[in-house]
């Protein structure tokens, strides 16, 4: 039984007006506990609508969402519970920061959960450290921090709620390569340490390829495919036809295969590609590059 399960989930915008549009259409999906899932798709493919259903921000037009086996719209209490079981970090989360100090901003979520002061204090300090925000920054105004630091504080604000499922919508948008790396690493670290289920929405297939074990591809309000990273990358051609960019390295491998080089076709990271090439060469030349 998956931790997230959707049954015929459909959401229609502006029902009864000329602008009526199905944002997601009959989604049946099951995401297993402890996965790190990358979600890709065009703007308007329905991926943002989908994730906003997981914590009850949007109510389905029809169909059901089950979190840990329970329908989140069964009662008011179960909807509220879903808010805490599923942590959602929006795009550009630093724009939601409002408190006077970093400490209080991270504490906002835990406070709303009604935790004790001690528990809040423990969680705030713990998550701050996890995202690389040092002790002395905690009493500073969050508005004085750098862009990357603000982003990490905002993510910490959700992590401190210790959700079993953590969803991040484009957590690296607008950051430089170093900032991107930092954010993705801390998410990976959090995933490893807590064993929670993580969903990352991203436009960067390169990033997804390096970090996710599974990939969900959304296209035209439907699930195009959901599976292990390697399996999804086997369909790289179809994915590029959709207009999504597959990593450069995958395109190179595909071209080499077209030209008759016999190598595996689920290569999507530079590191992996390097190993494959070296293996290929050493087999060809008898162990020269081991």
């Amino acid at each position: 039984m998956g931790i997230i399960k959707t049954e015929n989930l459909t959401y229609t915008y502006s029902v009864g007006t000329p602008f009526e549009k199905k944002a997601i259409d009959n989604i049946n999906l099951e995401i297993e506990e402890g996965e790190l899932v990358g979600i890709i798709g065009h703007t308007g493919s329905g991926k943002s609508t989908l994730i906003q259903h997981f914590n009850g921000l949007l109510k389905p037009t029809s169909g059901r969402i089950l979190i840990e086996g329970e329908d989140i719209w069964k009662s008011k209490a179960s909807t509220r519970q879903a808010r805490f079981t599923v942590g959602l970090v929006f795009q550009y989360p630093e724009y939601q920061i409002f408190e006077e100090t970093v400490y209080r901003d991270i504490a906002f979520g835990p406070k709303n959960m009604g935790l004790t002061e001690d528990e809040i204090d423990y969680r705030v300090r713990n998550t701050a450290t996890a995202v690389g925000i040092s002790e002395e920054l905690l009493q500073r105004s969050p508005f004085e921090l750098s862009g990357g630091q603000k982003r990490r504080v905002a993510i910490a604000g959700v992590m401190a709620m210790e959700p079993k499922i953590l969803i991040l919508d484009e957590p690296t948008a607008g950051l430089d390569p170093k900032g991107r790396e930092k954010i993705l690493n801390l998410i990976k670290e959090h995933h490893k340490k807590t064993g929670c289920t993580v969903l990352i929405v991203s436009h960067s297939m390169e990033d997804i390829a390096r970090y996710a074990n599974k990939i969900l591809v959304m296209n035209k309000s439907k699930v195009f495919c959901y599976g292990k990273t390697a399996e999804v990358f086997k369909r790289a051609n179809e994915i590029s036809e959709m207009g999504l960019t597959v990593p450069q390295i995958t395109r190179v491998i595909n071209e080499l295969k077209n030209r008759g080089i016999n190598i595996e076709d689920e290569i999507y990271t530079v590191k992996y590609a390097k190993e494959i090439f070296l293996k290929y060469l050493s087999e060809k030349e008898g162990g020269a590059y081991d």
Partner: peptide, 20 residues
Amino acid sequence: VGLDVPQVTELIYELNKYGL
């Protein structure tokens, strides 16, 4: 200095490290 290079450049660079 905190920048990337295109993936293909990086791949070639890595392979060259192994004496290619």
